[in-house]
Design a protein around this nucleic acid. Sequence first.
DNA 1: AAATAGGCCAACCGCTCCTCC
DNA 2: TGGAGGAGCGGTTGGCCTATT
Length: 278
Amino acid sequence: MGRLSCGGGGGGQAKLRKGLWSPEEDEKLYNHIIRHGVGCWSSVPKLAGLHRCGKSCRLRWINYLRPDLKRGSFSLQEEDLIVALHEILGNRWSQIASHLPGRTDNEIKNFWNSCLKKKLRQQGIDPATHKPITAMPDALPTDAQEDEDQKPPTGAGALAPNPKQQAVFDPFPAATDFGGVFDHDGLAAVPALFEGVTGDYSSVLDLDSYGESSSNSSNNNWNGCGAEMSNVLDGEALHWAPIKDDDDAALGEHKFLLQMPCQEQMSLPHFDFNLEYF
DNA sequence: AAATAGGCCAACCGCTCCTCC
DNA sequence: TGGAGGAGCGGTTGGCCTATT
């Protein structure tokens, strides 16, 4: 059933690596995509000199290396938005993620499964239906779908940032090791990164406005932020373009299209990540 | 201090969808 | 029109880390 998975016993190909990515692999993949864009994922590992399947490279890029990713814990506004979107969309994580700039479907899925479900139950809400859990005692989760127990959440763990941070290639050292301020929206990390690489952008970006946006999620400043980002990153490897479609308009949300550079599009300065930082 | 349990996250797996020929 | 291959999605799991005993 289905096609052969790329991992493991694929047959024919040289043995592919699986498991955690090393900093060297991250750097290869990142530099390859920054230089050449994605193109065809199945050819990326070969072109980038990686012993991974294309699928694995795609996942790593989307979930970890993408420059537009937010880092850090979810804000209360994001939390509320996820809950609201889940009520509408169900487990369509990619669609939910499309309304949360900088968040990945995997990240949201994990957050939902590990924190939000528990939190909703604590509030007497059935995470599956988003309706109040009925008074009927046997309405408590007994079916296979909702088989999680009713253990109280570990207070700090519920929404606290994950203390675990792997010692691997970090495309956004600003978020951690550079001491960059990581506000609710995590966007401060980006200028911090570029400060580390190309100069001081703190005077260009009004970081306070980002903080503001987090306190006003239904009417936040993503568009303005996009313009700012565009200003800052113009001439750099990235270009931000605010986009808005009907669905987003309905939800009052805006998102950004991160236009990855490709050879046809623009010629770009290249920067290598300096692993000394780690 | 050591053992154990639980939480969390990264990554894999298998499936469906989409596009091209 | 149907098959092949690539891309994307959601579910699941392995393993690390922290808290607790």
